[in-house]
Design a binder for these strands. Structure first.
Lengths: 148, 148
DNA sequence: GTTATTTAAGTTGTGCACAATTTAATTTTA
DNA sequence: TAAAATTAAATTGTGCACAACTTAAATAAC
């Protein structure tokens, strides 16, 4: 492939990933609207439903986000009554984030989302699994390249 | 997979795509910084390097973006001297966007980017091609689902 | 033990994304 | 052809993302 071909939009892996990501988020919107959540807020809840309590730092490591994004996002979630933020007593640099009752309860309502999304994606169970693995590998690789 | 498993972050295709997209953008940054471009601005140039002139509407259809995103973005690109925006004479609802000399010339500097990115992705030519096709199909499918 | 370094969050400023609305031009329909 | 509907951009407002910087606490080095 020559330079001219390479610069075509249709040959950019980056673009198809970028557009796909936004279209997937759009697909979630009607479901998340019902729960009063944005997509990144939903991701934070996915982490907290697993761990119940975590720090801003750990949350950032899981979601690949920094405090510049998370701090205001978590403040909004706190205002919405979904999480509670408090400075750690042991290490006052850290801020512990944990679920409230309300945040915990959203889990049941959210539990139907993965099936709905998988169905909407049009992928079979095998294709889904394969795509997931492929992405996670690509993500790992690029993340390690970016670290350097 | 039960509901508990399904809600784990590691099992979300959406998250791996979302995180991947942002990591890919990060990978482009050092290259785009040299050209004084953001990633969405680079995408606009990819389209214009192919077509030379287009409308906001057509640009939005190619990039899956609306005027709310494109109008301010194009204004910034116009201020930077990369593009020119002018109302169509035939249909005054439309705004034509075309490259300036400066915008045209950036193409040469950008031509090394695709090879660099492909190398950084760690994918072989075949894997790259396969991933690209897979994504475009997923994108098409989800986009059509969202349209409804 | 004091100074230097590192670490964790928060803050500030810029640029997307996108929903919802507005404005103005064009097309359709009655 | 006048009114209604549609279309294309722009505008407004909210919420991410993220770079760069600040603040404060903990750890390391001396």
């Amino acid at each position: 492939m020559n330079h001219k071909e390479q610069l075509k939009l249709e040959n950019q892996l980056c673009f198809s990933v970028y557009a796909c990501s936004r279209e997937i988020t759009k697909m979630y919107r009607p479901y998340l609207d019902q729960l009063g959540l944005t997509y990144p807020q939903y991701l934070v809840l996915l982490v907290l439903w697993e761990h119940h309590e975590t720090t801003v730092k750990a949350l950032g490591a899981e979601l690949y986000l920094d405090s510049g994004t998370l701090t205001p996002l978590l403040k909004r979630m706190e205002e919405a009554g979904l999480v509670k933020r408090e400075r750690s007593k042991e290490d006052e640099r850290r801020v512990m984030v944990h679920l409230t009752q309300k945040g915990e309860e959203l889990r049941d309502k959210a539990s139907i989302i993965p099936d709905a999304m998988a169905a909407n994606s049009g992928l079979s169970k095998e294709e889904f699994k394969k795509a997931l693995t492929g992405f996670q590998q690509l993500l790992d690789h690029i993340h390690s390249v970016n670290e350097k």
